[in-house]
Design a protein around this nucleic acid. Sequence first.
DNA 1: CGCATAGTTGACTACGCTCAACCCTGGTGG
DNA 2: CCACCAGGGTTGAGCGTAGTCAACTATGCG
Lengths: 204, 204
Amino acid sequence: MDLLTPESLPPALRNGITYQELVTGQALFQQGDPALAVFIVETGRLRLFRYTTEGKMVTFYVARAGEIFAEVAIFSDFYTDSAVAEVDSRVAVYPKQLLLDALCEYPNLAEDFMTLLVRKIQSLKFRLELRDIRSAHERVLQYLRHLAQPDDDRSVNLDRPLKDIAGDLGLTPETLSRTLRRLEREGAIARVQRVIMLQNSSVA
Amino acid sequence: MDLLTPESLPPALRNGITYQELVTGQALFQQGDPALAVFIVETGRLRLFRYTTEGKMVTFYVARAGEIFAEVAIFSDFYTDSAVAEVDSRVAVYPKQLLLDALCEYPNLAEDFMTLLVRKIQSLKFRLELRDIRSAHERVLQYLRHLAQPDDDRSVNLDRPLKDIAGDLGLTPETLSRTLRRLEREGAIARVQRVIMLQNSSVA
DNA sequence: CGCATAGTTGACTACGCTCAACCCTGGTGG
DNA sequence: CCACCAGGGTTGAGCGTAGTCAACTATGCG
């Protein structure tokens, strides 16, 4: 289900959307800048971070393709973080006022937008739940089960580098590698290339 | 800033809202129940949690006064977590269908609603980012700094049991206790009862 | 007064991190 | 066509930090 595709947008808003290309390391906005727009990542990924009063950099989020970010712009006058492209990226720019107007005029659009926000909440909640599982063993299993669910078969295709996945899971690549190997030896999963099959083992 | 106060609501929705009182420990709904309504905390606080397949309880969120929860009800037919009052609480009940109708009809309402969702996203993002800090030392400091910011003074009032806070931080009560003690000895914080003062130490 | 619960402290353990070496694959250029 | 290289992935050894288990204190409440 695609939300907020150009086709589904009212003309007034569609014409207002622009796209911006960013090269690695390029900043999209800085914390404190006037909040003019909400963004959705088309390709690449951006790091959202902030400097503490003591000058230390703290990463708040890494936004990837399809994800909305800087949604804080909806109700705040200034960006709370800075956004910098981690790799060459392309983002869709939804000017704030235009978007607000469109939301008022086209309720379905508002519903789409809320769906995006609720999805983001669900995704964040799931990732947070994962982190509450201490053992790498169980955490990885839970992650794989979650990914397998939508397809309803028991296979998972790992479409991005293991080291990225390790980051999402809050593990190092080494630990993830070891854990997958162990799960394989135990018969909990089977691996062929980048595809993982979950065995219908009873969970201890 | 109050959002979604009774006065700001269209009559059709206002008349549909009910309020529910909960005593400590009382459940509002269980995971798997049909999702009939979205809630906003009036007073008190509720714990949103889920049981993993291993039977371990995982807290997703603690909703406090003014916060929205069970927003998944907007798009889902069943609740994904259980909600239980941590203290005597009062919640506003927004029946799902009524709310959806009202959102379509009253765009300002939708904006308020989105603001609540965005706030929640901000809060979740922060907690997730905390978990990426491996060292308990830094994690606790970051947490305290975050809590101190709104007041703009450097003090934090811990209004709930340390063991609950430890849970939010992904630490055991023992580790949190030790960490606070160490921060105290190092002069990074000062503690009086349940109030913590952050010292303006430069962070290495 | 006695019990329950939160919080603190200590000793020990275990798990995941770090650092390092190595393998494997895909891409590039001579 | 092969040689080379870069990056991801795997494996090993050792370490450190937070978890675990346990004992004890402090606090609140019937």
